[in-house]
Nucleic acid binder design. Structure first.
Length: 813
RNA sequence: GCCGGGAUGGCGGAACUGGCAGACGCAGAGGACUUAAAAUCCUCCGGAGCAAUCCUUGUGGGUUCGAGUCCCUCUCCCGGCACCA
């Protein structure tokens, strides 16, 4: 009798041995092809839940598969450790953010180690470590020197709960991405990165294998649109500007302009407003500022606005155009001003109706007889009421009007982007300090490399009503200007955590290097990342930032590639009780209990088996028991004595054939990351081997060979069980240094196949034929079948379709 | 509203290029072993029908010798964006 499969015991044993032997530590090796398998590192929130496991375990399976295939695999892990929750914990419970974060890291690292992943812990990266953020700060100064970081005053997204500004990407439906508090606008001096400089390149995903979905999301986020800038003449005694520019994608409708709308924040608003309108305009502007983003952007909200009393002139028609303000015009897009053409824009139409502004049709709908429009007509048509452009189809008119404007100097073709620059200042303590010093004489001076890192002071007094302790830390704030030595003050804002995660994949290549952010040689060897896996929620945040960062430092000459991640894969999410897991619903699955009872290999295998990785799935306790039974069957199959009774040549041949077929199938499924069908195929093979064992009709050598292949093929999924079985079946340590089994196409070939015979597309018979059969013979045999005869008798065979090796379809009439 | 993705047995899912629908697993039923239970093993398992056979991949249509797969229509679900001029 063999002993029971005691998974927890075996797992602990091998984990210790692997760690002692440094089995998973990797070095650059020019003799083997490299493979960089990266999983998005977790934020240090405290506990790893099953969602983290679902992100990490399958990528570990794939990385292990690549290792067995002979690649030199870099599979690192680290922690995204700067951020608000740490600070909130500090405020609420009086724990220092560093202490809270480091304790969480301890716990998460321990949990990660039980997962049995082949992480090279020697390369661990923690973003709040001064040895790391020194280089985050260094990159900041580089971006500043290359004019990619700048300070600007602008209305910004402000979360009143977190007491912090947010980048556009970090506002979801008008709510803060972290705490879901409605975001409001504030005017603040902020540091921004010129990500818009790379807008065009960020829309391109040439040469990288990313999900179509993510590419589209990024393209939409950048939101490039071609249009025309049109200037309207301004003649106002108290305003120096002689024109107001608008951005439009419909210059073909410029003859239909009956009013202009400025964003309430537009700089000209105060100057333009006539004395009699002043009170009303100011009230409207004040109300806009008070509104949260959701209130302002609500499409339910009726469009409203206020007339400023001022007029501009439409240079094409000479018409006087009243200037309004309305909050549906955004200050950050285009020029913050729009020409309103109510006849051909839904918003302008509603606005004109409300305030009785004239509506002038300039694009004729088909069959239009001059009647009043009931809705804005936004489709294509012929230009009318547009002087020399009358009769032109509007698409052509768009180009013609733009050309005319350019010739007159009244406008030009231009491109507008939806994406804004990346706002990176955070008015918080728990982040990397922005390495800038303000000097009265020298202005804004970056901290030189020799003075980096600008250490985050340990003392953190959170008693200033949510304001950053850094602001009140006199000792820290007051410093000397690195240029002239006179007194200077430090920037007290810290860097958005997303900047820390924009380059961590570079640090993994040489995590202990202290001469620069990364060792250029090692980076050259490992980068770019071959496969990057993680949640789709980062589509327009992390993934856009990391691409921007890579392109920016490429242009500084620090690296020679512009895309950090060759292939991207997004896993799905695991649900429980038909809903997303959450602490408040109390349906969070904690892997620990399953690991302690069934073993981590079972948990890993179950996650693989649940469904396609990109789809996620629902966690069932009954489902995991199926996988547990399977691993137990493998245990017995591999370790119980095999006693051949007879030696059957046909059975031997079949075993060999099926083994080669299964190796081919498993390898293919691995390559396509189809882990669920991979497990299913391995189960089928296990079931088949069980039958072979019962019949005991193959030699012991053949049997042992099959077991060896099976154990190798489960090694990526169940690394501990595989190592134990490898050891117990007399093989040399370690299975994780073995080559992945190969298949022989010839040996995998069937010599007999089942041919499906159809009559008029309906299945009528299956016949077993030699694989080498000719088309002629196959057709003849099909018609000769006893089951087929009644269906073709007395009918005329008009056609016979033959699909080699698959089917014959007899078409009769 | 716009852009993406999806809908297959009681359940999770499989069917890779248009060619046997339902692999594999769960649940269920029956049996073996057992004093008994658990565990394990064997058999059955989309629906109707004694059977031959017929029906069946969200709805309705189309293309094709042949459609879960391709095209069009509609319904519902999930994700993203949402006054971007």
């Amino acid at each position: 009798m063999i002993d029971k499969y005691n998974a927890p015991e075996i797992e602990k044993k091998w984990q210790k041995k692997w760690a002692d032997d440094k089995l998973y530590e990797v070095k650059e090796d020019s003799k083997r092809p490299k493979w960089y398998a990266l999983t998005m590192f977790p934020y240090t929130s405290g506990d790893l839940h099953i969602g983290h496991w679902y992100a990490m375990a399958p990528s570990d399976v794939y990385a292990r598969f690549k290792r067995l295939q002979g690649y030199n695999v870099l599979h690192p892990m680290g922690f995204d450790a700067f951020g608000l929750p740490a600070e909130n914990a500090a405020i609420k419970r009086g724990i220092h953010p560093r202490k809270w974060t480091m304790a969480n890291i301890e716990n998460m690292r321990r949990q990660l180690k039980t997962m049995g992943a082949m992480y090279d812990w020697n390369r661990e990266v923690i973003t709040c470590d001064p040895k790391y953020y020194k280089w985050t700060q260094w990159f900041f100064t580089k971006l500043f020197q290359h004019d990619l970081a700048y300070r600007g005053k602008a209305p910004v997204n402000w979360c009143p709960q977190c007491q912090v500004v947010l980048a556009n990407e970090q506002v979801e439906n008008g709510l803060c991405w972290r705490c879901e508090t409605p975001v409001v606008k504030r005017d603040l001096e902020q540091w921004l990165f010129r990500i818009t400089k790379y807008a065009d390149e960020l829309m391109e995903h040439e040469g990288i294998d990313w999900p179509e979905r993510i590419q589209i999301m990024q393209k939409n986020w950048v939101g490039k649109s071609y249009g025309t800038e049109v200037s309207f003449a301004l003649d106002h005694p108290s305003v120096a500007e002689k024109e107001i520019k608008v951005f439009t994608t419909r210059p073909d409708t410029v003859f239909g302009v009956t009013f202009m709308v400025l964003a309430p924040e537009h700089p000209l608003v105060a100057k333009l407003t006539t004395p009699d309108k002043k009170a009303e305009v100011e009230a409207y502007v004040a109300r806009t500022r008070r509104f949260t983003e959701i209130e302002r952007l609500s499409t339910e909200k009726e469009k409203d606005g206020v007339f400023t009393g001022a007029y501009v002139t439409n240079r094409l028609t000479g018409d006087k155009v009243p200037v309004w303000i309305a909050d549906y015009v955004l200050v950050g897009y285009g020029t913050g001003a729009v020409m309103a053409v109510p006849a051909h824009d839904e918003r302008d139409f509603a606005f004109a109706k409300k305030y009785n502004i004239p509506i002038k049709t300039v694009i004729s709908p088909p069959e239009w007889k001059g009647e009043e429009l009931e809705n804005a007509y936004i489709d294509d048509g012929t230009m009318i009421n547009s002087s020399q452009f009358n009769g032109l189809p509007n698409r052509e008119g768009t180009k013609a009007v733009t050309a005319f404007l350019e010739q007159k100097g009244w406008g030009k073709g231009t491109i507008s982007y939806r994406m804004r620059d990346w706002l990176i200042s955070r008015q918080r303590y728990w982040g990397a300090p922005i390495p800038m010093i303000y000097c009265d004489k020298c202005g804004t001076v970056p901290v030189p490399e020799k003075d980096l890192p600008v250490l985050l002071p340990e003392e953190a007094d959170f008693s200033h009503q949510g304001e950053s302790p850094l602001k009140y830390n006199e000792k820290w704030v007051n410093t000397k200007c690195p240029k002239c030595g006179s007194p200077g003050k430090r920037e007290t804002d810290t860097i958005d955590g997303f900047m820390c995660s924009s380059w961590y994949f570079l640090r993994y290549c040489s995590p202990h290097y202290d001469k620069a952010a990364f060792d250029p040689e090692k980076t050259k060897y490992w980068m770019p990342v071959d496969i990057y896996t993680g949640g789709a929620e980062h589509a327009v945040m992390h993934l856009l930032y990391a691409r921007f960062f890579t392109k920016a430092i490429r242009d500084m000459g620090l690296i020679d590639f512009g895309e950090p991640f060759k292939r991207l894969f997004n896993q799905g999410i695991i649900i429980a009780d038909h809903q997303k897991m959450s602490k408040s619903k109390g349906n969070v699955i904690n892997p620990d209990a399953y690991v302690n009872e069934l073993g981590v290999d079972t948990v890993r295998a179950y996650m693989m088996f649940m469904g396609p990785w990109e789809q996620g799935g629902e966690w069932f306790d009954t489902g995991i028991s199926g996988v547990s039974r399977w691993l137990n069957r493998i245990w017995k199959l591999a370790l119980e004595e095999y006693q051949p009774k007879i030696n059957d040549a046909t059975a031997m041949k079949e075993l060999e054939r099926i083994t080669h077929q299964i190796i081919k199938k498993i390898t293919g499924d691995m390559d396509r990351l189809r882990f669920n069908t991979m497990i299913a195929a391995l189960m089928e093979y296990t079931n088949y081997l069980n039958k072979v064992k019962e019949s005991a009709n193959v030699t012991n050598d053949a049997w042992q060979n099959s077991i060896e292949k099976l154990v190798l093929m489960i090694a990526p999924t169940a690394p501990h069980l595989a190592e134990e079985l490898w050891h117990r079946t007399g093989h040399k340590y370690s299975i994780h240094n073995q080559p992945w089994p190969k298949w022989d196409e010839e040996l995998a070939k069937e010599d007999e196949i089942t041919l499906v015979v159809q009559v008029n597309g309906k299945l009528r018979d299956r016949i077993t034929i030699p694989a080498s059969i000719t088309e002629e013979e196959a057709k003849k045999m099909s018609q000769a079948s006893e089951k087929i005869k009644p269906f073709i008798q007395g009918q005329k065979v008009v056609n016979i379709i033959y699909v080699p090796g698959k089917l014959v379809n007899i078409v009769v009439r």
